[in-house]
Design a protein around this nucleic acid. Sequence first.
DNA 1: CGGACAATTGTTAGCGCTAACATGTGCCTC
DNA 2: GAGGCACATGTTAGCGCTAACAATTGTCCG
Lengths: 351, 351
Amino acid sequence: MLPEGAPRALGMADVAAHAGVSHQTVSRVVNGHPNVAPATRERVLRAIAELGYRPNTAARALVTGSTRTIGLVTSHINQYGPAQTLLGLEKAARAAGYSLSVAILDEDSEGAMREAVDRFVSQSVDAVVALSTYGQAVEALGRLQSPVPLIAVQVGYDPARPTVWVDQEVGAALATRHLLQLGHRTVHHVTGPQDSLEARGRMLGWRKELTAAGARVPEVSYGSWWPSSGYAAGRELAARVRAGRRSGEAVTAVFVANDQMALGLLNALHEEGLTVPGDISVVGFDDVPEAAYYTPPLTTVRQDFAELGRRGVQLVLARLRGEGFHAEPVMPQLIVRGSTGPARPAPDQSA
Amino acid sequence: MLPEGAPRALGMADVAAHAGVSHQTVSRVVNGHPNVAPATRERVLRAIAELGYRPNTAARALVTGSTRTIGLVTSHINQYGPAQTLLGLEKAARAAGYSLSVAILDEDSEGAMREAVDRFVSQSVDAVVALSTYGQAVEALGRLQSPVPLIAVQVGYDPARPTVWVDQEVGAALATRHLLQLGHRTVHHVTGPQDSLEARGRMLGWRKELTAAGARVPEVSYGSWWPSSGYAAGRELAARVRAGRRSGEAVTAVFVANDQMALGLLNALHEEGLTVPGDISVVGFDDVPEAAYYTPPLTTVRQDFAELGRRGVQLVLARLRGEGFHAEPVMPQLIVRGSTGPARPAPDQSA
DNA sequence: CGGACAATTGTTAGCGCTAACATGTGCCTC
DNA sequence: GAGGCACATGTTAGCGCTAACAATTGTCCG
C-alpha cells in the first residue's frame, strides 16, 4: 500500500516523550489552551517542529464529533458563477480553519440531495452548504432534517433556510431600467431553467420594473443557461423583430438571464443580419470574463461571487456559534458596454 | 450547537442490541465480510434500516488509517477545463466509494502546494490528485515526498509522476495541420502562461508541425488564458497583418492556445475591421460550450475533460491497489467551424 | 505561618470502530 | 466416534486523541 518507506505517522506520545511532558500537555499546546507555561509551550512547539508532527484529524474528529470540514453540495459547478463562488467559499473556509468536501449532484432531484447530505452527515461534517442547486433539490433542502447546520448559497432567497444570496430582483431591475431609460418601449426577456430560483428572481425583477414603468410585459422565452438555448431564442426573436416592424409592435430590447445565453442570442441576431445595438439592445447577467469581448461587448449585471462565498462561510460560522446571523443580500452592479443603445426614434425605419 | 432536537447519532452497539447480535457482527455486515449467515445478515440489515444507522467515518478512519477520501489540489478551477474535469473526477470517485476534498491554491507556488498536500496527509486522505496546476506548484509536485499516492491530472506529461493527460501536442498539431492544409503559408501562435505545461505542450505541437511541413515558425505572442490577453494579441496581430500585406510576409492564420483568448482575439480583429476567416483564420483550443456561438463560430480542438477525470480516479485506484497503471493520453479532436477558411490566392490583394 | 486558591501538569477513561483472537457449532472423514 | 476443519459468532484490545478529574506546586493573605 505504501511503496515508499513511509516513516509511519507519529503521535502525540512521541512528541510528549521528545519534549519530556505528558501527551495531554502536547494536546493543550496544539489546541492553544491557556494554562501552559510559556517555557513548556516553547519546548513542545520545538519538539513538534523537529519531529514534523501533525495531529491526526480522524482521532480528533472521533472524540470531538467535529471534523472542521464543511460539506458542499452543488450541481452545475461547471458554470462560471458557481465555480467562482466555490473559489470564494474554499478560501474563506480555509482561512477559518475548515476544509471543504464536495458532492456534485448527478441530477437536481430530492433523492440525490438527500443522499449527498446523508453522506456528509455520516462523515461528521460540521455544516452543509448547498450551492446553486435547482428545483426539487432545493425543495428537498427545505424539508431536510439534519443534525448539522444546513445553509443555502445562491439559490435565491429562501425564508425557510439560512441563505446567502445576490439580489437577483435588483439586478434584473437594473438591467430593465437601463433599457427603458434608453427609450425602449418595453424589454423582452429570455429566462433560465424554470426550476432555478435565480431565473425566477430575475424574471420577477424584470416584470416588476416593467410594470412599475407602465410598460407592456411581453411573453418570455425559456432557456437552459447554455448558449444554444440563447441562440434558439435569438432566432425566434429575430423573426419577431421583423414582424414587429410591420405591425408597429417593435422588439428593440432584450434582457437575457445570463451571459452565455446572451452570447448565443447575439450570434443568432448577427446571422439574421440584425445589428446590436442598432436594431436591438441586449443585456446579459453575470459579467463573465468573456462578456467584455463579445461582439459587441455585452452590457451586463455583475455579481460578486467571491463575496457570496465569503458570506456563505460567515453564515456557517455564525450558525456553528449558535448565533442568528441575518444575511443581507449582496448587491449586483450594472456594467454598461456596447450592446445597449438608444431606441431608434421612429419604430418603422428599415435597415 | 444543535438547535433541533438532534436524535444523537447511534452506534453499532445500538444496532447490535436491536438485532440481537454483537457489534462485531454488525461491523461484518456493514463491511460486506463473507462469513455471516444469510439470516443474520438480513436481520442486521433490517435493524440498520429501521434505526437509520450510518457508520461513523471518523472512527473507521481512526482504526483503518483510511478515510476513503481523495484530496484534490487545484488552482484555476474557475476555468472551463478544470471545472469540467472536477465534475468527472467527483463522479468517478463517488462511484468508487470515495469522497472528494478540495484545496484551491492561492498561488502556484511550491509553498502553497506543499501546505495543501500536508493538510491532506494529516487528514489521512488515501490519495492526492493535483489538477491543472502551474509552474512552481508542478515542480514541487515532482519533489514532494508523501506517504500517500500523489498523482497528476492535466498538467502535461510528467515522467516523474503518475499522470493522466490529454495529448496537447497532438491537439496543437491537428489545429496547425488543418490551417496548413487550407493553404496558409504558416500559422501564428498565441500561447498561454509560460509556466503552464499545457501551454508548453501546445506550443511544442504547433512548432513541430510547422517544422515538419517546412513552414516558417513565427514568433509567438504570450497570453494569460484570459480573453483580455487574447484581445491584446489580436491588436498586435492586426498591425502585423497590415504590415505583412505591404512586405509580402502575410499573417493569414493564428492558432490560439485556448478559446477564451481566441474570443478576445476575434473581438480585436473585428474592431480593426479585419474579417475572419476572410482576412485571417483562427483556431482555438478546448471547445468551450460558447465556442460554437462566437462570431464567427470557432474552429477549435476539443478535449474530453470528463474522460480525463474518470481516468484520474482509475489511476488513483490502481495505485491504491499497488498496481502500476500505465495511462495512455486522451486524444483531442479537431472541431471545424466557421473561423477557418482557405488562404487567399494572392497575398497582396487589399480589402 | 497555615490554609485557600490559582496555575500548571499528569492520569484516566472512552469516542466508535476494526482486527485479531477465542469460542462454539455442525459436518465430514477415516 | 474422535479428530479435524470450515463456518458463524462473540470477546478483547487499541487506533490517537480530548475531556474530566486528580495531583502538585507556588503564591498570597489573614
